[in-house]
Amino acid sequence: MARYAMVIDTVKCVGCMDCVVACKTENNVPEGFNRDWIAYETIGKYPNLHMEIRSERCNHCDNPPCVYTCPTGASHISDIGGIVLVDYDKCIGCKACIAACPYDARFIHPDGYATKCTFCEHRVVQGLDPACVSTCPTHCMYFGDLEDPNSEVSKLLQSRKYHVLNPETGTKPQVYYLI
């Protein structure tokens, strides 16, 4: 079975938020909500500064507390490459999954259910890249199957240094940041 993951090259990312806008239109994310967002982190003292820019979203964790905590099974690990999804018709809006996510990747849709990044599963099943990946003007985002050693994402993780977000929480995030 596939293990879908996203690899984002922070060296190329310019923090333009194109990925956020594309997600909004592709997935009709309601006004005032974001499925993905940008983190600009700067260290040092002017003019000796170093900056990392990250496009962040649900990490589709291999060990997802949001799923474990869900009392109804609405939050689940789908059979499509381990993408973590919410079945809106099962969701009671108890918000346990939101509390359980160390990345605050989830929110309650105005219609009452919990939602978040879906890795554009509706595009992936058609063989397309997620909307954010396919619009990124710097081509700094990569999506693919880590089970396949020849996939671009696998190759990148073999050849480049990278980190994930808050590994200490034990969630095994599947969004990787090249440095």
Binding site: K12, V14, G15, T138, H139
Partner: peptide, 19 residues
């Protein structure tokens, strides 16, 4: 300020140059 100045092709080429 390419990357904030988002003139599309220039930003795409800027990223290529970085790569």
């Amino acid at each position: 300020h390419l990357g904030e100045n988002m003139h599309n092709s220039q930003v795409q080429e800027f990223a290529e140059a970085i790569a």
